[in-house]
Design a protein around this nucleic acid. Structure first.
Lengths: 153, 153
DNA sequence: GTGCTTGCAAACGTTTTGCAGACTC
DNA sequence: GAGTCTGCAAAACGTTTGCAAGCAC
């Protein structure tokens, strides 16, 4: 595939409102378009909810029916580059997008598909030894940890 | 998507040779076909090497030029169900297949794409607290852990 | 001969891209 | 007006599936 693994996002931006985010967009020469504003509104309305690009597109279309899925993808990519948005891979299906400020780790059950949100503290020891032994700094948010949940064990 | 997240593989099978694996296949009512034997030979020749389905297909075709990629996928799926083979997701690209007996965890650099093989011991603490706090039993092999390697930090 | 396996082609779901027109600033 | 952004269509990617012919047992 040879493509970049993730849009190497900036430091987590200090973005508390839709307008903060649009200001960031403008600061790098971008424009504050309706589709961008509405996408951000949707993200800020349920900041802890994971949504796929398709789900975001449907939510955006309630207010602007003609916004195309490819526009959603392009805007998410841009917002991710700016550090406003983050995506997580929950297993084999579509990526889940979220505001960067509410990012967290995930356990995903291989059996039933249930996802469990995990406090970052659980990764402290792994993060510490990864750095100590490999000089590797772990990002526990980007891919879910797979396994079996209590019900399926 | 709604499909099974992973072919819920049997316990790791005690399979030390190609013929052991083919015996397992037969025990399930399957047949020992040339494409299956050659695929297993390729896997046993470099047991620690990760290979994509496409790479395996190319290697198999050296000995049997007409083996189709879909046959590779079907046979890998079957061998995974039998506990002989395991696959890992290394980032956004194609899955990496391996003999189950040489499975291990991975760190993958989001910046440069380098993968680091990780001893399972590094996951001990995460595994322990995941069980204690969530009743979740971690499988550290199925998805790589992302982050930044020493060179890219 | 039974029925598992194969090659092929075509579909799949997610994501990316090329383009001409539309819009923001 | 310059340059960014959009909708659309089409492609890309890895993977799966339906089918009729082929092979293992």
């Amino acid at each position: 595939m040879g493509k970049t693994l993730s849009p190497h996002h900036a430091e987590l931006a200090d973005v508390a409102t839709v307008d903060d985010a649009l200001a960031l967009v403008r600061a790098r020469g971008g424009r504050a378009t309706p589709s961008r504003r509405i996408l951000l509104e949707v993200l800020f309305e349920a900041p802890r909810r994971h949504m796929t690009a398709e789900e975001l597109a449907q939510a955006v279309r309630v207010r602007a029916p003609d916004v195309h899925l490819s526009t959603i993808y392009r805007n998410l990519e841009e917002l991710e580059r700016l550090g406003v948005v983050v995506h997580t891979h929950l297993g084999h299906s579509a990526s889940a997008y979220q505001l960067a400020s509410s990012a967290h780790g995930h356990f995903l059950c291989e059996e039933c598909g249930k996802t469990i949100e995990v406090p970052d503290a659980l990764f402290n020891e792994l993060t510490r030894s990864a750095t100590a032994e490999f000089g590797f700094s772990v990002n526990p948010h980007h891919f879910a940890i797979l396994g079996r949940c209590a019900d399926c064990s």
